[in-house]
Design a protein around this nucleic acid. Sequence first.
DNA 1: GATACGAGGGAATGCGCTTGCCAAGTTCCA
DNA 2: TGGAACTTGGCAAGCGCATTCCCTCGTATC
Lengths: 367, 367
Amino acid sequence: MPAVTLSEVARAAGVSPATASRVLNGSSRTPGADIAERVRAAAAALGYIPNAQAQALARSSSGLLGLIVHDIADPYFSSIARGVQSAARELGKILLLTSTEGTPAEERLAVEAFTSRRADAIVMAGSRSTRTEDSLDNAALKRETERYLANGGSLVLVGHDLVSPEGASDHGSPSGPEDADLEASFAPSPLLVSIPNEFLARELGLCLSDEGFSRFAIVAGPEGLMTSDLRVSGFQMALGEKGLQEADVLRSAFNRDGGYDAGGALEASVRAAVERGDRLCIFAVNDRMAMGVVAALRQKGLHAPTDYAIAGFDDINTLEDFIPGLTTVRLPLEEIGRKAARAALTGEDPLPAAGEVILRESTGRRA
Amino acid sequence: MPAVTLSEVARAAGVSPATASRVLNGSSRTPGADIAERVRAAAAALGYIPNAQAQALARSSSGLLGLIVHDIADPYFSSIARGVQSAARELGKILLLTSTEGTPAEERLAVEAFTSRRADAIVMAGSRSTRTEDSLDNAALKRETERYLANGGSLVLVGHDLVSPEGASDHGSPSGPEDADLEASFAPSPLLVSIPNEFLARELGLCLSDEGFSRFAIVAGPEGLMTSDLRVSGFQMALGEKGLQEADVLRSAFNRDGGYDAGGALEASVRAAVERGDRLCIFAVNDRMAMGVVAALRQKGLHAPTDYAIAGFDDINTLEDFIPGLTTVRLPLEEIGRKAARAALTGEDPLPAAGEVILRESTGRRA
DNA sequence: GATACGAGGGAATGCGCTTGCCAAGTTCCA
DNA sequence: TGGAACTTGGCAAGCGCATTCCCTCGTATC
């Protein structure tokens, strides 16, 4: 029972496929009212649904918007996804989703798949990795995106730009001999909804120093994870500006469990501070890590803000009912998603995302 | 700079497009090794990426898996989405996502869009509505899914079946005159990953009675929301079996804020119980509502499990760090997503989802 | 009333790929 | 050694639709 085709509708209406096409899908030429009505009636009666694949092939525009995230179950990304979806709906596009688990290799695959699908635009969110073990995959990812762009696609990155191969672009690229030189100057480049991680982390650092904290520890993701690294450096920068000692950096996985592990490791420092009559202020580079830290320390009988202070980053919506209310940096994630999608689809360069420090109970006065 | 096509590759390799097609895309016929190598080399050199639209058109299989959820930013759905994505990856499909905000009208649109895209399979998750104001849209949704199925699509519902129009199927349908009779018996029907909401809510009710609670209140979603209604009735059923009085039902929005509102409204009852030296046990029909209730009551100075007890449903992963640890019914959401996707893609009938009551601090002994 | 012009409908072509079919070349057994 | 039975490329016909070009017919203009 194959689907009803346009020519069947046309035959039923007693017109040519060309005419049927013109009335059913917004063409510049509008057939006469009576005919149009007949065609529409026939289409309705037969339950005609256009074959989007065929349309895409004929028009060479697919109506697809690709979204690449690290983990769709992570509230950070699912909020962005929500924004992207809402923009896609408004613009009449439908969403292609890939959740990559964060590896550049998977991201490359996703870009390839979307290219193959001829997605009109792609939004790629999530931290880049500057680790050397990822550099090959990063380079491959970069080439893949360039190919996509060269084929007329539109790409917007959320967060930061792709990492370029070490040797910059002035050495001839080792693989493609000539195209690097010839096309480089004309090659379209991805747009960027930048998230000022470093700047905002610095703001947070300044705020917290102003609150009177003087001893800090940072719970970060693995070295080479760009988002984490920037937040760390921004925060340290603030401490430096305030004439404070640099914070110790504890590295673990960039998620809740990583935070939990780090929290356990911080017990001694927290207790030491308490015994000195002081409080350690912990900055976890994202909210989920912060939640993990809090959970671990609570198990040890240590509580914020009484025994220590803690701040996160992102202001994921999960935080709403978390105790203690967590100081953090709000990122308008859904809005960022919307913006990215609109930029990708309309081609206009987006503004960087805004963000703001939100002080809550977790860095408040000692209970 | 249009993308490179198969025939360009073929020409470069000095073979026919047919041969090139056979070597590049898994065909049953594999050309000779030397030729294959030549073609592969040419494809690599030119950076060929097959046009999936054209392939889909020619093969009449798109390699697309559609996913329809109410709200992708809701952890309930994003967990399911994660499972679906992982199954899709394993089976070499790519995901089409629509987040509908829960209205049957939007869901119908999504099914139509996926049909148009010729998605190989669709997974639709989220509660159905039995409200009369939705009955028209429900009927339209049902017709749309039937059309999709009739066109050879495969549909899996997560949760419960579609709601059928009132008059059952024995009256001739008012719209399509003959096809209702003729095709009805052969019409393929959607598969179902059923979630035993009623059964599990009953289990929860039994557990809580066994814990010694005797006065209950239920915080439910709006009447007519099937998931909510079933959880309410299952719970009440348990109370009846235990010879307890039926619980009062408070209705509000099926989300965190709805729970918050209901929590405020429950203050008096909670206090009354406390003054009697008793504790009210609240069952919120989903975790997010439960979190809202807790937040509202906390603002009034009331805490679980000291002043009242509370249980939720779903065991969304956000709960991990929620205080107090919330008694709930665990649903293996990611697993459910995987199962649904596999069923949709392979066509085999899935088993119902399992679930289990998880007792935690929120219904424990009085602090 | 003849000419010019515009509007509306249809035939044909192509989007990029798959695949049934055919012809030519091989292998193998009687 | 002569086919029978396979292989293996290539040819061509679509898949379902948009769109260009052409043709016809109706109407306005003088």
